[in-house]
Amino acid sequence: GTEIELESKNGQREHYTATSEDEARKIIEKAVRRGIKRIELRGASEQLIRDMQEIAKQIGLQYRTDGSL
């Protein structure tokens, strides 16, 4: 699965493990709508990382991946 670590603007951290790319995408989209400061992805697919970079650029988000592409 993909591990997703979120940090909201007030510094609250949340951790999710998505079993599918679809689920990961839903978690990320929800977080973005809620207003999130930072997202870290571990074990994400190349496609998901590309999507994440696109989203991050659009809304000026900090993100990090573990680089295991």
Rank of each mutant, 00 (worst) to 15 (best):
G1D: 11
T2G: 05
T2W: 10
E3N: 09
E3V: 10
I4R: 01
I4M: 03
I4Y: 01
I4L: 04
I4G: 00
E5H: 12
E5F: 14
E5K: 10
L6E: 01
E7P: 01
E7R: 07
E7W: 13
E7Q: 09
S8R: 12
K9Y: 12
K9P: 09
N10S: 12
N10A: 11
G11Y: 01
Q12N: 09
Q12V: 10
Q12G: 08
Q12W: 11
R13L: 13
E14R: 06
E14K: 07
H15M: 10
H15W: 11
Y16D: 00
Y16V: 04
T17H: 13
T17P: 03
T17S: 11
A18K: 03
S20P: 02
D22K: 08
D22N: 05
D22V: 07
E23F: 04
E23N: 03
A24M: 05
R25M: 08
R25H: 04
R25G: 01
R25S: 02
R25I: 09
K26P: 01
I27R: 01
I27M: 04
I27S: 01
I28W: 02
E29S: 07
E29R: 08
E29P: 00
E29A: 12
E29M: 12
K30Q: 14
K30A: 14
K30N: 14
K30S: 13
A31P: 00
A31N: 02
V32M: 15
V32P: 00
V32W: 04
R34F: 05
R34V: 13
R34I: 08
G35D: 05
G35E: 05
I36N: 01
I36A: 07
K37S: 07
K37N: 08
R38E: 04
R38I: 06
R38C: 13
R38W: 13
I39Y: 01
I39W: 03
E40R: 12
E40F: 13
L41P: 00
L41T: 04
G43T: 04
G43W: 07
G43R: 07
A44R: 02
A44T: 02
A44H: 03
A44C: 07
S45T: 08
S45C: 05
S45D: 03
E46H: 09
Q47K: 09
Q47H: 07
Q47S: 11
I49Q: 10
M52T: 09
M52V: 15
Q53P: 03
Q53F: 10
E54L: 07
E54N: 09
E54S: 09
E54M: 08
E54Y: 08
E54D: 10
I55Q: 03
A56P: 01
K57P: 03
Q58S: 08
Q58I: 13
Q58T: 11
I59W: 15
I59Y: 15
I59L: 15
I59S: 14
I59N: 15
G60A: 06
G60N: 08
L61Y: 10
L61S: 05
L61T: 04
L61N: 04
Q62S: 09
Y63Q: 06
Y63E: 07
Y63G: 06
R64G: 14
R64D: 15
T65F: 06
T65H: 14
D66I: 04
D66P: 04
G67K: 03
S68L: 12
L69C: 14
L69V: 11
